[in-house]
């Protein structure tokens, strides 16, 4: 696709801006910012990927993955405002999920250890782990707030924070995984996943594209679960103080 052809797609942006102006929806400015940002970000990433793929140097692959984890952590930590040390907990959770998933994928020779496989699949795994982490943090705080009386009753009966909180940690983990599991269930029926679509458009055999998509889906489920469980277990103790009193972050009250 030439840049000229690509620029024709700005017609879509124009349609959105015209509609927004006409109906006074007021998102023109945001549409323009989004268009400019996504164009610049993706073009830069495209060039960086080209360089990294060309070098195929493990150091750059690792750096790239670290960068992705850092951005994902930063993003997900916004969901845990008020929880002490939430950033490093997310960092650990996402890193563990990514390392385990990639070790299996590469270790079992499911994908070759090459930049063009490692980086996009890492991006998807890390991105999904980020979303799951955000959901988990949100849910964990709301579970603790809405079941406050049950938790306090258990504490008052001599239960430890772990005993008092465990049903709600599990509930939060379960809730955070539902979107991943549900989208896996309907995969192919409701929507064709982006990666597969991309491969098919780029000329790959749909059968091969499907196989890669399955690899991604299955590693998604496992890595989402690993990230969610790790984060849930790392985070719940911070909802209690040294005297085993429930302390809810201000944001969840």
């Amino acid at each position: 696709m030439s840049l000229l052809t690509l620029s024709f797609t700005l017609a879509f942006v124009a349609i959105a801006i015209i509609l927004s102006t006409w109906l006074k929806i007021g998102v023109e400015r945001d549409i323009i910012i989004a268009t400019v940002r996504s164009t610049i970000q993706l073009l830069i990433v495209g060039y960086i990927l080209k360089i990294v793929f060309g070098l195929n140097n493990p150091l750059f692959i690792v750096l790239m993955i670290i960068l992705m984890i850092a951005v994902a952590t930063q993003n997900a930590s916004k969901r845990g405002n008020g929880i002490v040390g939430v950033t490093w907990r997310i960092l650990i959770a996402i890193t563990i999920a990514e390392v385990i998933a990639q070790s299996l994928l590469v270790g079992l020779h499911i994908i070759p250890a090459k930049a063009q496989y490692l980086i996009p699949i890492s991006g998807m795994i890390i991105g999904n782990a980020m979303i799951v982490s955000g959901l988990l943090l949100n849910r964990l705080q709301s579970e603790a707030a809405s079941h406050r009386q049950e938790i306090i009753t258990l504490l008052a009966l001599g239960g430890t924070p772990k005993q008092s909180m465990m049903p709600f940690v599990k509930q939060a983990i379960r809730a955070s995984l539902i979107p991943t599991i549900d989208s896996t269930k309907t995969m192919g029926l409701v929507q064709l996943p982006g990666m597969m679509t991309g491969q098919i458009i780029a000329g790959a055999d749909p059968i091969i594209a499907v196989r890669f998509q399955l690899v991604v889906l299955f590693s998604f489920m496992a890595s989402a679960m690993i990230a969610s469980i790790t984060l849930g277990f790392l985070t719940y103790p911070s909802l209690f103080n040294q005297y085993q009193q429930l302390i809810l972050p201000v944001s969840s009250k």
Binding site: L155, A156, L157, G158, G159, T160, Y243, Q244
Partner: peptide, 9 residues
């Protein structure tokens, strides 16, 4: 703490 909470219901 847990001992206290059992002794003081």
């Amino acid at each position: 703490v847990t001992e206290l909470r059992r002794k003081v219901g």
